[in-house]
Design a protein around this nucleic acid. Structure first.
Length: 420
RNA sequence: GGAAGUGUGGCAGAGCGGCCGAAUGCACCCGCCUUGAAAGCGGGCGUCCCGAGAGGGACCGGGGGUUCGAAUCCCUCCACUUCCGCCA
């Protein structure tokens, strides 16, 4: 949820944000008016209630005819209070609904526009020249006995897979390396629930425009998380966290589940786009004024990981229309995928400012001891998809794959993976 | 899955349907005392909403109900505890 106080003071900033996202800026006026309606409804209900309380005290002391008269009056007042309170509740519901539908205010420096309007911030490394035709990760992985998508489909359907043998080891190596780095950088390692309650899923902003992406267990009224960001954001819901010693850094290790509704036909080969994968994710709670600096740190940690797998990548500043509901700004690191001659997302780091924390009611105490809404950020350290970039960029003509040096300690010292 | 119980402020723990936003203790903060500390004494000590302010309102797990009036009665959901069963 966006800050309503900010909205009242500077509605034009929110309109500009909506336009940058390519969304309706008319909601700003609707929201302002709903806010006004609510506030007057609250004032009316409160004063009637005050009157009722006064009367209630008199009834307690009175007796006889006087008491009878007061009771009659009280009955009438009770009806008025009830009516006013219903009006207040309706005004509040309407405001909440509208409020919840407005995405975060984008950072003024984020590029405007849609998916293709990103700005490339930098390139790191150069795509390798192959003196043979590079194969794609599915071919390489299958030959290595690392990947089995056919049986994945047999058992679970399209976009499911088995990581087998060295493939499973590769993923463990990657995630362990990520966990290790997180711990070295002061993160608290977490293994999180992957099923969460509706309030938590909704609080993180994933039940808005992207609700169809989320798996839901109707029988139990639970949702499968698409990232441990959800669980980690919920971790401190309804709490006043202590940021006295600086931002809180958590790293969540979990499986992630995505319906991939509406992506029919896209990335159907291999494990680029799948319904289930594993991820180590960084998550930060901090003061709003520290959020941008934390965002830069998250990006740096992502690049530290990318350096370890020795693949060429670029960093993009994601355009406003592609930010998702909660982010004010987002940087993606995209690795070069030789078989596609394209850069594909390996990491994504979002600054959600106070948007998520306001919904989840996560606060901290400022210098004066006053509770204030915290800011939250997240960023990827490693995912199953990274295997794609590793296999394809480090392949050789004979189908073997060189193991990046930093990963070798996590693979028992192996330097090369060879087909059987 | 079945049965019983519990859910009050940072913690512990009282609370007859009106005098309860809520006793008391601990913790915490400020002051006095002290060379310093402890003890002792005095004061303070929740969150949210509306309001320029004065002030008003809400909150005793969540939601609903009864009543002129609910922390207190009823319903329901959730969480936790214990017992039984079942499965790992």
């Amino acid at each position: 949820m966006i800050d309503l106080r900010m909205l009242r003071e500077d509605p034009e900033a929110v309109r500009a944000s909506q336009r940058a996202r390519g969304e309706d800026d008319g909601v700003v006026d609707a929201l302002l008016s709903a806010d006004e309606t609510r506030r007057s409804a609250v004032a009316r209900a409160d004063s009637l209630r005050a009157e009722q309380k006064q009367l209630g005290k008199q009834v307690g002391k009175a007796s006889g005819d006087e008491r009878e008269a007061l009771l009659v009056k009280g009955k009438d007042l009770a009806a008025q209070v009830k009516a006013a309170d219903t009006e207040r509740a309706e005004a509040e519901d309407k405001l909440t609904e509208l409020h919840g539908s407005v995405p975060n205010v984008v950072h003024p420096d984020a590029p405007a526009g849609g998916e293709d309007d990103y700005v490339v911030l930098k390139h790191v490394g150069t795509p390798r020249e192959f003196d043979f035709t590079p194969r794609d990760h599915l071919d390489i992985g299958t030959a290595l006995g690392a990947l089995d998508t056919e049986r994945g489909a047999k058992v679970s359907g399209a976009r499911f897979y088995f990581l087998t043998g060295v493939g499973a080891q590769l993923q463990l190596a990657l995630l362990n390396m990520a966990a290790q780095q997180a711990i070295e950088n002061g993160f608290t390692m977490m293994i999180t629930p992957v099923l969460v309650r509706p309030e938590i899923m909704s609080g993180t902003g994933f039940l808005g425009a992207h609700a169809s992406e989320v798996y839901r267990l109707r029988d139990d009224d639970l949702y499968l998380v698409g990232t441990s960001e959800v669980s980690l954001a919920g971790y401190h819901a309804d709490e006043i966290v202590d940021l006295g010693a600086g931002p809180l850094h958590y790293a969540g290790w979990s499986s992630c589940f995505r319906r991939e509704a509406g992506s029919y036909g896209k990335d159907t080969r291999g494990i680029i786009r799948v319904h289930q994968f594993d991820k180590v994710e960084m998550f930060v709670y901090c003061r709003p004024q520290d959020a941008e600096a934390e965002h830069d740190r998250l990006l740096a940690w992502e690049e530290q990981m990318l350096a370890k797998i020795e693949v060429p990548y670029r960093v993009i500043d994601v355009a406003a229309g592609d930010l998702g509901t909660s982010a004010a700004r987002k940087y993606d690191c995209e690795a070069w995928v030789p078989s596609q001659q394209a850069y594909r997302e390996l990491t994504s780091t979002s600054n959600c400012t106070t948007f998520q924390a306001r919904r989840l009611n996560v606060r901290y105490r400022d210098e004066d001891g006053r509770p204030q809404i915290a800011a939250t950020l997240n960023g990827t350290l490693a995912t199953t998809r990274w295997i794609v970039a590793i296999l394809e960029n480090h392949q050789d003509a004979d189908g073997s794959v060189r193991v990046p040096e930093a990963m070798r300690p996590y693979l028992g010292g192996r330097e090369v993976l060879r087909p059987a």
